[in-house]
């Protein structure tokens, strides 16, 4: 499984080579387009900045007060049975409702244990392979005026838990 770490080093350079190479091949003004696109990136970050400040404030207070440790201790008996780090349970649950709230919990884990720790890696992979279930469902179904969502939620939960389990197994195999 070590080769997956090795492959990871190649992914971003490969994407650059492929896209810029293709751009040169089709005589696209690659530099001009890059500059144009980079501007959009600023806007994206500026849009989420107030949310991130608000949520990191709340998580910061929860962490400093000792409430987060209390919660981790409470659920430890259940999670240790499944050999799943108890600090990650709140992340998985919150991620279903709000991506930015989950992000602030993730950052808290990076701060506590470091991004290169086992939990740090596991939570990075979990965040890469799951989506905000309830938020996304609400946005799409409300916009379409649909009230009965049938088996959508069950399917989303199955997909999400598959992602979480796969992340936990992969972390233990790879690192």
């Amino acid at each position: 499984m070590k080769f997956l770490v090795y492959v990871s080093d190649f992914i971003i350079p490969f994407i650059f080579f492929y896209i810029i190479g293709f751009g040169l091949f089709t005589k696209t003004n690659v530099y001009d387009e890059f500059i144009k696109g980079a501007k959009d990136g600023f806007k994206v970050v500026l849009d989420i900045m107030p949310t991130l400040i608000g949520l990191m404030l709340a998580i910061g207070i929860l962490r400093a007060s000792g409430a987060l440790d209390l919660l981790s201790e409470l659920i430890k008996p259940v999670t240790s049975f499944f050999k799943f780090p108890s600090q990650l349970v709140p992340v998985v649950i919150v991620k279903m409702f709000s991506s930015s709230a989950a992000t602030s919990l993730v950052l808290d884990i990076y701060k506590q244990y470091g991004p290169d720790s086992q939990v740090g890696r596991m939570v990075s992979i979990i965040m890469s392979s799951t989506e905000t279930i309830f938020y996304t469902m609400a946005v799409y179904f409300v916009a379409a005026g649909v009230k009965k969502t049938r088996y959508t939620l069950l399917g989303c939960l199955i997909a999400t838990f598959t992602g979480v389990i796969a992340s936990a197994i992969l972390t233990n195999l790879m690192f």
Binding site: L4, S8, I12, I125, S129, G163
Partner: peptide, 19 residues
């Protein structure tokens, strides 16, 4: 920072295949 990319892609594939 990018060392989790490979595992992330596989985990994403797993969840999508399940879905």
């Amino acid at each position: 920072p990018a060392e989790i990319l490979g595992a992330g892609i596989i985990a994403t594939l797993c969840s999508t295949v399940a879905g």
